[in-house]
Protein backbone atom coordinates (compact mmCIF):
# COMPACT_ATOMS: atom_id res chain seq x y z
CA UNK A 1 0.00 0.00 0.00
CA UNK A 2 1.38 3.38 -0.93
CA UNK A 3 1.32 5.82 1.98
CA UNK A 4 2.47 9.41 2.41
CA UNK A 5 5.07 9.66 5.16
CA UNK A 6 5.63 13.43 5.06
CA UNK A 7 3.57 16.06 3.35
CA UNK A 8 4.75 19.65 3.05
CA UNK A 9 2.68 22.19 1.19
CA UNK A 10 5.02 24.25 -0.98
CA UNK A 11 4.38 27.96 -1.34
CA UNK A 12 3.18 28.00 -4.96
CA UNK A 13 0.45 25.50 -5.73
CA UNK A 14 2.28 22.25 -5.07
CA UNK A 15 2.58 19.72 -2.27
CA UNK A 16 5.76 17.78 -1.62
CA UNK A 17 5.02 14.20 -0.64
CA UNK A 18 7.49 11.61 0.56
CA UNK A 19 5.94 8.23 0.02
CA UNK A 20 6.56 4.66 0.97
CA UNK A 21 5.21 1.42 -0.36
CA UNK A 22 4.39 -0.89 2.53
CA UNK A 23 4.39 -4.53 1.45
CA UNK A 24 2.82 -6.89 3.95
CA UNK A 25 1.83 -10.56 3.94
CA UNK A 26 -1.82 -11.33 3.25
CA UNK A 27 -2.29 -12.61 6.80
CA UNK A 28 -0.69 -10.60 9.60
CA UNK A 29 -0.05 -11.93 13.12
CA UNK A 30 1.11 -8.69 14.69
CA UNK A 31 4.71 -9.62 15.37
CA UNK A 32 6.12 -9.61 11.85
CA UNK A 33 9.69 -8.40 11.43
CA UNK A 34 10.00 -5.12 9.54
CA UNK A 35 12.64 -4.03 7.03
CA UNK A 36 12.98 -0.48 5.67
CA UNK A 37 14.66 0.14 2.31
CA UNK A 38 15.55 3.79 1.74
CA UNK A 39 16.86 5.61 -1.29
CA UNK A 40 17.10 9.03 -2.87
CA UNK A 41 18.48 11.04 0.04
CA UNK A 42 20.87 12.44 -2.57
CA UNK A 43 18.92 13.59 -5.61
CA UNK A 44 21.63 12.67 -8.11
CA UNK A 45 21.84 9.02 -7.05
CA UNK A 46 19.50 6.95 -9.19
CA UNK A 47 20.77 3.38 -8.73
CA UNK A 48 18.45 3.06 -5.73
CA UNK A 49 15.45 3.90 -7.90
CA UNK A 50 16.00 0.75 -9.93
CA UNK A 51 16.67 -1.29 -6.78
CA UNK A 52 13.39 -0.14 -5.19
CA UNK A 53 11.44 -0.83 -8.37
CA UNK A 54 12.89 -4.29 -8.88
CA UNK A 55 12.51 -5.22 -5.21
CA UNK A 56 8.81 -4.32 -5.24
CA UNK A 57 8.31 -6.09 -8.58
CA UNK A 58 9.91 -9.32 -7.38
CA UNK A 59 7.99 -9.33 -4.09
CA UNK A 60 4.70 -8.77 -5.92
CA UNK A 61 5.56 -11.64 -8.25
CA UNK A 62 5.74 -14.08 -5.32
CA UNK A 63 3.61 -12.48 -2.61
CA UNK A 64 3.03 -15.81 -0.88
CA UNK A 65 6.70 -15.89 0.15
CA UNK A 66 6.42 -12.58 2.01
CA UNK A 67 6.27 -13.27 5.76
CA UNK A 68 7.09 -9.84 7.17
CA UNK A 69 6.80 -6.13 6.44
CA UNK A 70 8.94 -4.39 3.83
CA UNK A 71 8.67 -0.61 3.73
CA UNK A 72 10.23 0.88 0.59
CA UNK A 73 10.99 4.62 0.67
CA UNK A 74 12.39 5.33 -2.82
CA UNK A 75 12.69 9.12 -2.68
CA UNK A 76 13.56 10.98 0.52
CA UNK A 77 14.64 14.00 -1.56
CA UNK A 78 11.98 13.90 -4.31
CA UNK A 79 12.55 17.42 -5.61
CA UNK A 80 16.31 16.77 -5.78
CA UNK A 81 15.61 13.64 -7.84
CA UNK A 82 13.31 15.62 -10.09
CA UNK A 83 16.05 18.11 -10.96
CA UNK A 84 19.08 15.78 -10.53
CA UNK A 85 20.45 17.83 -7.64
CA UNK A 86 22.37 16.04 -4.92
CA UNK A 87 21.62 18.42 -2.07
CA UNK A 88 18.27 19.69 -0.85
CA UNK A 89 16.97 22.14 -3.48
CA UNK A 90 15.46 24.23 -0.69
CA UNK A 91 18.56 24.93 1.40
CA UNK A 92 21.46 23.54 -0.64
CA UNK A 93 22.34 21.38 2.37
CA UNK A 94 23.22 17.68 2.16
CA UNK A 95 20.08 16.04 3.60
CA UNK A 96 22.23 13.26 5.01
CA UNK A 97 23.62 15.73 7.56
CA UNK A 98 20.17 16.72 8.87
CA UNK A 99 19.08 13.58 10.73
CA UNK A 100 17.42 13.03 13.20
CA UNK A 101 16.01 16.41 12.21
CA UNK A 102 13.83 18.79 14.13
CA UNK A 103 10.20 19.83 13.97
CA UNK A 104 11.12 23.48 14.35
CA UNK A 105 14.07 23.94 12.01
CA UNK A 106 14.39 24.18 8.24
CA UNK A 107 12.19 22.29 5.79
CA UNK A 108 14.93 19.62 5.50
CA UNK A 109 15.13 19.19 9.25
CA UNK A 110 11.35 18.89 9.43
CA UNK A 111 11.30 16.25 6.69
CA UNK A 112 14.16 14.39 8.37
CA UNK A 113 12.31 14.33 11.69
CA UNK A 114 9.15 12.92 10.11
CA UNK A 115 11.08 10.29 8.14
CA UNK A 116 12.85 9.09 11.30
CA UNK A 117 9.55 9.01 13.16
CA UNK A 118 8.02 6.82 10.46
CA UNK A 119 10.95 4.39 10.43
CA UNK A 120 11.04 4.00 14.20
CA UNK A 121 10.15 0.44 15.12
CA UNK A 122 11.67 -1.17 12.02
CA UNK A 123 14.08 -3.98 12.87
CA UNK A 124 16.57 -3.28 10.09
CA UNK A 125 17.08 -0.50 7.55
CA UNK A 126 19.18 -0.43 4.38
CA UNK A 127 19.97 3.05 3.03
CA UNK A 128 20.90 2.75 -0.64
CA UNK A 129 23.38 5.22 -2.16
CA UNK A 130 25.20 5.42 -5.50
CA UNK A 131 28.38 7.37 -4.77
CA UNK A 132 28.88 10.77 -6.41
CA UNK A 133 29.61 11.74 -10.01
CA UNK A 134 33.34 11.61 -9.28
CA UNK A 135 33.99 8.06 -8.09
CA UNK A 136 32.72 4.67 -9.17
CA UNK A 137 32.21 2.27 -6.29
CA UNK A 138 32.07 -1.51 -6.19
CA UNK A 139 28.96 -2.65 -4.31
CA UNK A 140 29.84 -2.24 -0.66
CA UNK A 141 28.25 -1.90 2.75
CA UNK A 142 29.39 0.96 4.96
CA UNK A 143 28.88 1.17 8.66
CA UNK A 144 30.14 3.28 11.50
CA UNK A 145 32.58 1.35 13.72
CA UNK A 146 30.25 2.18 16.64
CA UNK A 147 27.54 -0.05 15.11
CA UNK A 148 29.56 -3.06 13.95
CA UNK A 149 28.43 -5.47 16.64
CA UNK A 150 24.77 -4.82 15.91
CA UNK A 151 24.72 -4.76 12.11
CA UNK A 152 27.63 -6.79 10.75
CA UNK A 153 25.75 -10.08 10.68
CA UNK A 154 23.03 -8.46 8.56
CA UNK A 155 25.57 -6.75 6.31
CA UNK A 156 27.05 -10.09 5.23
CA UNK A 157 23.70 -11.03 3.68
CA UNK A 158 23.76 -8.11 1.25
CA UNK A 159 25.96 -9.91 -1.28
CA UNK A 160 28.51 -7.12 -1.65
CA UNK A 161 32.18 -7.40 -2.48
CA UNK A 162 33.18 -5.39 0.55
CA UNK A 163 32.07 -4.23 3.99
CA UNK A 164 33.83 -1.05 4.99
CA UNK A 165 33.82 -0.16 8.67
CA UNK A 166 34.52 3.52 8.62
CA UNK A 167 32.81 6.71 9.88
CA UNK A 168 32.45 8.18 6.35
CA UNK A 169 29.91 10.91 5.63
CA UNK A 170 27.08 8.51 4.87
CA UNK A 171 27.26 6.83 8.29
CA UNK A 172 28.52 9.51 10.64
CA UNK A 173 26.55 11.72 13.02
CA UNK A 174 23.87 13.63 11.07
CA UNK A 175 23.25 10.74 8.68
CA UNK A 176 20.04 8.72 8.57
CA UNK A 177 22.07 5.63 9.41
CA UNK A 178 23.54 7.15 12.57
CA UNK A 179 20.19 8.53 13.71
CA UNK A 180 18.33 5.23 13.19
CA UNK A 181 21.01 3.17 14.92
CA UNK A 182 20.59 5.55 17.88
CA UNK A 183 16.94 4.53 18.22
CA UNK A 184 17.51 0.82 17.80
CA UNK A 185 16.88 0.40 14.06
CA UNK A 186 19.87 -1.60 12.84
CA UNK A 187 20.91 0.43 9.81
CA UNK A 188 23.61 0.09 7.18
CA UNK A 189 24.45 1.96 4.01
CA UNK A 190 25.00 0.48 0.57
CA UNK A 191 27.19 2.34 -1.93
CA UNK A 192 27.45 1.12 -5.51
CA UNK A 193 28.12 2.58 -8.95
CA UNK A 194 28.20 6.27 -9.85
CA UNK A 195 25.70 9.08 -9.41
CA UNK A 196 23.35 9.85 -12.33
CA UNK A 197 23.73 6.32 -13.72
CA UNK A 198 22.20 2.91 -13.14
CA UNK A 199 24.52 -0.09 -13.26
CA UNK A 200 22.06 -2.93 -13.60
CA UNK A 201 24.61 -5.63 -12.77
CA UNK A 202 25.50 -3.95 -9.47
CA UNK A 203 21.85 -3.27 -8.67
CA UNK A 204 20.72 -6.84 -9.40
CA UNK A 205 23.49 -8.18 -7.20
CA UNK A 206 22.31 -5.96 -4.35
CA UNK A 207 18.66 -6.89 -4.88
CA UNK A 208 19.66 -10.56 -4.55
CA UNK A 209 21.41 -9.55 -1.33
CA UNK A 210 18.34 -7.75 0.02
CA UNK A 211 16.31 -10.96 -0.49
CA UNK A 212 19.01 -12.87 1.43
CA UNK A 213 18.69 -10.30 4.21
CA UNK A 214 14.90 -10.70 4.16
CA UNK A 215 15.30 -14.46 4.45
CA UNK A 216 17.71 -14.04 7.36
CA UNK A 217 15.16 -11.82 9.10
CA UNK A 218 12.30 -14.27 8.51
CA UNK A 219 10.61 -11.92 6.05
CA UNK A 220 11.05 -14.05 2.91
CA UNK A 221 10.52 -17.77 2.42
CA UNK A 222 11.15 -17.85 -1.33
CA UNK A 223 14.29 -18.87 -3.20
CA UNK A 224 17.43 -16.81 -2.67
CA UNK A 225 21.01 -17.05 -3.86
CA UNK A 226 23.94 -18.07 -1.66
CA UNK A 227 25.42 -14.71 -0.90
CA UNK A 228 29.02 -13.87 -1.56
CA UNK A 229 31.43 -13.69 1.38
CA UNK A 230 32.35 -10.01 1.62
CA UNK A 231 35.79 -8.75 2.52
CA UNK A 232 35.54 -6.75 5.78
CA UNK A 233 37.95 -3.83 5.93
CA UNK A 234 38.68 -0.99 8.31
CA UNK A 235 40.60 2.20 7.53
CA UNK A 236 43.93 0.62 8.37
CA UNK A 237 43.38 -1.83 5.49
CA UNK A 238 42.60 0.85 2.91
CA UNK A 239 45.08 2.71 0.72
CA UNK A 240 43.93 6.10 -0.58
CA UNK A 241 45.45 7.27 -3.86
CA UNK A 242 45.24 11.04 -4.37
CA UNK A 243 46.92 12.80 -7.29
CA UNK A 244 49.41 15.59 -6.71
CA UNK A 245 48.96 17.31 -10.07
CA UNK A 246 46.05 18.62 -12.09
CA UNK A 247 44.93 17.48 -15.52
CA UNK A 248 43.02 14.56 -17.00
CA UNK A 249 43.00 11.15 -15.34
CA UNK A 250 43.48 8.29 -17.80
CA UNK A 251 42.80 4.94 -16.12
CA UNK A 252 45.07 2.01 -16.92
CA UNK A 253 42.90 -0.64 -15.30
CA UNK A 254 39.28 -1.57 -14.80
CA UNK A 255 37.33 -0.80 -11.67
CA UNK A 256 37.21 -3.89 -9.40
CA UNK A 257 40.63 -5.16 -10.53
CA UNK A 258 42.94 -6.93 -8.10
CA UNK A 259 46.32 -5.23 -8.22
CA UNK A 260 49.82 -5.93 -7.02
CA UNK A 261 52.08 -3.39 -5.38
CA UNK A 262 53.60 -1.19 -8.11
CA UNK A 263 50.89 -1.81 -10.72
CA UNK A 264 49.95 1.32 -12.65
CA UNK A 265 46.47 2.59 -11.81
CA UNK A 266 46.50 5.45 -14.27
CA UNK A 267 48.15 8.62 -15.47
CA UNK A 268 47.48 12.32 -15.03
CA UNK A 269 48.11 13.98 -18.39
CA UNK A 270 48.30 17.66 -19.27
CA UNK A 271 46.14 18.54 -22.25
CA UNK A 272 47.95 21.59 -23.55
CA UNK A 273 51.45 20.11 -23.44
CA UNK A 274 50.56 16.55 -24.34
CA UNK A 275 52.72 15.40 -21.44
CA UNK A 276 52.24 12.80 -18.72
CA UNK A 277 52.44 14.71 -15.45
CA UNK A 278 52.08 11.88 -12.98
CA UNK A 279 51.95 8.08 -12.99
CA UNK A 280 49.88 6.64 -10.15
CA UNK A 281 50.82 3.20 -8.88
CA UNK A 282 49.38 0.93 -6.24
CA UNK A 283 51.23 1.07 -2.90
CA UNK A 284 50.00 -2.43 -1.96
CA UNK A 285 48.40 -5.64 -3.17
CA UNK A 286 44.63 -5.33 -3.08
CA UNK A 287 41.25 -4.69 -4.67
CA UNK A 288 40.51 -1.39 -6.44
CA UNK A 289 37.02 -0.78 -5.07
CA UNK A 290 36.75 2.96 -5.77
CA UNK A 291 38.04 4.45 -9.02
CA UNK A 292 37.91 7.98 -10.41
CA UNK A 293 35.03 8.33 -12.88
CA UNK A 294 35.06 12.05 -13.64
CA UNK A 295 38.36 12.53 -15.46
CA UNK A 296 39.19 16.18 -14.71
CA UNK A 297 41.29 16.28 -11.57
CA UNK A 298 43.12 18.82 -9.49
CA UNK A 299 45.85 18.53 -6.91
CA UNK A 300 44.50 16.29 -4.14
CA UNK A 301 41.64 14.69 -6.07
CA UNK A 302 40.87 11.16 -4.95
CA UNK A 303 41.75 8.71 -7.72
CA UNK A 304 41.28 5.31 -6.12
CA UNK A 305 40.80 3.40 -2.92
CA UNK A 306 42.37 -0.03 -2.58
CA UNK A 307 41.34 -2.61 -0.02
CA UNK A 308 44.46 -4.50 1.02
CA UNK A 309 44.06 -8.22 0.57
Amino acid sequence: MIETVVKVKLPVDETLRIKKNRLTPDVMHGNEPRLAIVSGIHGDEVGGQYICYELIRRIKQDYASLKGIVDVYPAINPVGLDIAKRESPFTDVDMNTCFPGSEGGSIDEYIASQVVKDMEGANVCVDVHSSSIYLKELPQVRMNDRDVDKVLSYAYCLNTDLIWVHPSNTVKEGSLSYALNNIGVKTMVIEAGVALKIYHDYCNKLIDGIFCLMKNMGIWSGETISFKQALVVTDSNIAYINCETSGIFVAELEHGTKVNKGDVIGRIVKVITGAVEEVLTSPCDGLVFSLREYPLVEEGSLIARIAKC
Binding site: E87, S132, Y134, Y240, N242, L296, E299, G300, S301, L302
Partner: peptide
Protein backbone atom coordinates in the same frame (compact mmCIF):
# COMPACT_ATOMS: atom_id res chain seq x y z
CA UNK B 1 34.03 24.67 -7.89
CA UNK B 2 35.25 21.25 -8.88
CA UNK B 3 33.34 18.99 -6.49
CA UNK B 4 30.80 21.27 -4.76
CA UNK B 5 32.23 20.48 -1.33
CA UNK B 6 31.95 22.97 1.52
CA UNK B 7 35.30 23.88 3.10
CA UNK B 8 33.60 24.68 6.40
CA UNK B 9 32.34 21.09 6.59
CA UNK B 10 35.79 19.54 6.09
CA UNK B 11 37.55 20.27 9.38
CA UNK B 12 39.78 18.94 10.86
CA UNK B 13 40.71 17.94 7.31
CA UNK B 14 43.42 15.68 5.98
CA UNK B 15 46.60 17.04 4.42
CA UNK B 16 46.74 13.99 2.12
CA UNK B 17 43.03 14.10 1.33
CA UNK B 18 40.90 15.81 -1.31
CA UNK B 19 41.46 19.50 -2.12
CA UNK B 20 39.01 21.05 0.37
CA UNK B 21 40.10 18.60 3.04
CA UNK B 22 43.73 19.67 2.45
Amino acid sequence: GKDNSDINRQFPGNEQGEPTSR
